[in-house]
Design a binder for these strands. Sequence first.
DNA 1: CAAGGACAATTCGTATACAATCTTGTAACA
DNA 2: TGTTACAAGATTGTATACGAATTGTCCTTG
Lengths: 222, 222
Amino acid sequence: MRPHLTPPITDGEARTTPLAIAQVLRARIIGGNYAPGEQLVEDRLAKHFGVSRIPVREALRMLEAEGFVELVPYRGAFVAEVDRDSADHTLEIRAGLEPIAARRAAIFRSEDDLEVLRDAQARGDHATAREQYELLPSLNSVFHSALWSASANNELKNLLDQLKFKIAWVYSLNVRKNAKESWQEHKRILDAVEAGDDIAAEQAMRDHIDAAIEIHRRYPRR
Amino acid sequence: MRPHLTPPITDGEARTTPLAIAQVLRARIIGGNYAPGEQLVEDRLAKHFGVSRIPVREALRMLEAEGFVELVPYRGAFVAEVDRDSADHTLEIRAGLEPIAARRAAIFRSEDDLEVLRDAQARGDHATAREQYELLPSLNSVFHSALWSASANNELKNLLDQLKFKIAWVYSLNVRKNAKESWQEHKRILDAVEAGDDIAAEQAMRDHIDAAIEIHRRYPRR
DNA sequence: CAAGGACAATTCGTATACAATCTTGTAACA
DNA sequence: TGTTACAAGATTGTATACGAATTGTCCTTG
């Protein structure tokens, strides 16, 4: 399967070529390999990945929808600029949506959801206690993703899944310093979700996001 | 410009062919011309629009990002199903975002923004008083769009602009009965935005959206 | 008669080729 | 010197053609 280009596209397992290309490009944009505003020339990318321009174009369309590139007709694709303001704006959107997810999760969570949340929480605590900070970003991602799934609102989950990459981009440089507080906040959210207390879950998540934004404001990356 | 296909694509002015096709398809999906779950065969659409499959594919990618179609690799594009739940879920997302926009609008609105808002409000009141209900949906859209612009959060505006179509889809059948109350609520929002009272604006918008959801729940479309 | 496999038909995936458009540099002109 | 016109180069837009995956059908086989 995927006849022409298995070698260059290193991504683990993407069902289609455009998806694989999009993942690589997204990771590079988040990782800062491309300068903001830089043009992504289709032909160059196509040669780089060893494919034709068609799948590259589709990948760029996906990244456009996620806000990582801007597509200008007859001009090309340009890496989006993430200035201080647009970072704030993205976090503000997150602040509007995550509390809703938490509230719903407290109502609709299944036993399986709780399982995953408890597990992520335990691993997070563990890693924090041992100061294995490099593990935290992915554990954090697991915790939040599990909450979105538990919210039983698929549109919301999809939206937050998309935002996730952008938030990762925003946060990319300053990994949150106060890991311990962060996982204490998670604990509070988890407790509320377990108890089925939707109001408390919403409030706990609101506090959690606000704290993250506060930290982000205090230690600006650029 | 747009060499090959000016006649079939009736859209007003879209800069590129895929955009024009996407607009037509979106309108048809919202308008109920395609059954939910129905497959949109690229070849058929291409012939219908008098273009090749390439621009059709790009249009479908856009609609996928907006949640109107589902793209399955090697199977095709299918019109999304909007059941009762997913409609609720979309409205819930809106309920999370619009109050933020209103709060920010109260802080950042320019004199031009206020101009547009006052104008929309006046026209809405006028149309309501004369019972010209057919004018209300577009005026309502103008009012809300102006608020999003005034919020000075471009990411939020883009997101709400996308959601707009889906919300239109959700509401498509039952135009809100109580137009008068709706525009009284707008008035309250506008007053708060004019006064620069961000807390009041946020609360007024929250009430407005909640009322809309309540109506929607009371008069289900399917 | 049910289960499994070969095959055909349909549809998507993408490589190639060429047309349309935009940008930039240059030269003629006021 | 500043401005416009134009041509060349680069890049995107899309039509065509063919390869690949999926699905359904019909045949075989136990």
